[in-house]
Simulated scan of single mutants.
Amino acid sequence: MLGNGIREINIPNTDLVIQQDAKGSLTYSKSIRNDARIAYDTLRTPKGGVYQLNLSDGTKIWLNTSSAIRFPENFANNKRDVELLYGEAYFEVKHRSEAPFTVKTFAGIVRDLGTHFNVNSQTGGGHVAATLLEGAIEVEANGQVKK
């Protein structure tokens, strides 16, 4: 477990390394494989915990307390999809028009159009709220798309 003086974890039988800097930010490092398989990881924050996660494409995610996100170890095929399983996350996306960044939730999809945004998918109310801080996003839910 990171946070108890441990700054790096090497995952056995893989080439994945998880590092935590002095400020608590988590960075995943992995060499690119030649096979077509994409490996996924899930990060869950405990009650009272908040983590910053740096993805392989340079996107930064702050995962709020009692939240979970599923993401690929490396993005492939010009697809950059993550899944906010529950909770709340703030995204600073490294925009690439040829490879859009997408956040999937139980109630819809939020697409990056070059921006910083927050997604709250608390399951209690059965809805998702996206808050734009900079740039532009597109939200798709219930068959409707809004920018």
Rank of each mutant, 00 (worst) to 15 (best):
T14N: 00
Y40V: 00
S31I: 04
V93K: 03
G108H: 11
K30G: 10
G5V: 07
N77W: 02
K94L: 11
L84A: 04
T42E: 15
F71Q: 14
D21A: 00
S56K: 03
I69Y: 05
V17G: 01
L55V: 02
Q19A: 14
G24F: 06
Q52F: 01
T65H: 03
D81W: 02
G49T: 00
V17P: 04
R44E: 06
K23V: 00
G87W: 06
K79F: 05
K23H: 10
T27H: 09
L63M: 09
F106G: 08
F101E: 11
T45I: 07
N77G: 00
K47V: 12
E73V: 11
T102D: 15
S29A: 10
F91E: 14
D15R: 00
R37D: 14
G87T: 12
V103I: 12
Y28V: 00
P46Q: 10
R96A: 14
D57G: 08
N78Q: 09
V93T: 03
V82Y: 01
Y28Q: 01
D15Y: 01
A89E: 12
G58P: 01
G24M: 09
I38F: 08
K94A: 15
N34L: 01
P100C: 14
S97A: 14
E73P: 03
D81R: 06
E98A: 15
T42M: 07
D21E: 09
N77R: 15
K30Q: 14
D41V: 02
F106T: 06
E88H: 07
R44W: 03
P46D: 08
D21S: 00
E8S: 13
N64C: 02
T45L: 03
A36G: 00
L16C: 02
P72H: 10
G48M: 10
F101C: 12
F71V: 12
L53M: 06
T59Q: 09
Y86A: 07
K47R: 06
L16Q: 01
E92Y: 05
G58Q: 01
T45N: 11
V50F: 09
Q19N: 12
R44C: 05
D21T: 05
T102M: 14
R33H: 03
F91A: 15
E8L: 02
S67T: 10
G3V: 05
S56R: 01
D41L: 10
H95K: 13
R37V: 00
I32E: 09
S25P: 03
P12W: 04
F75S: 14
E83G: 04
T59I: 06
T105P: 11
K79Y: 06
E73M: 09
S29K: 03
G24Q: 09
N64H: 05
A68G: 14
A68E: 13
G87P: 12
T59S: 13
Q19R: 11
P100K: 15
I11K: 02
S31H: 03
R33I: 03
S29V: 02
I18L: 13
A76R: 15
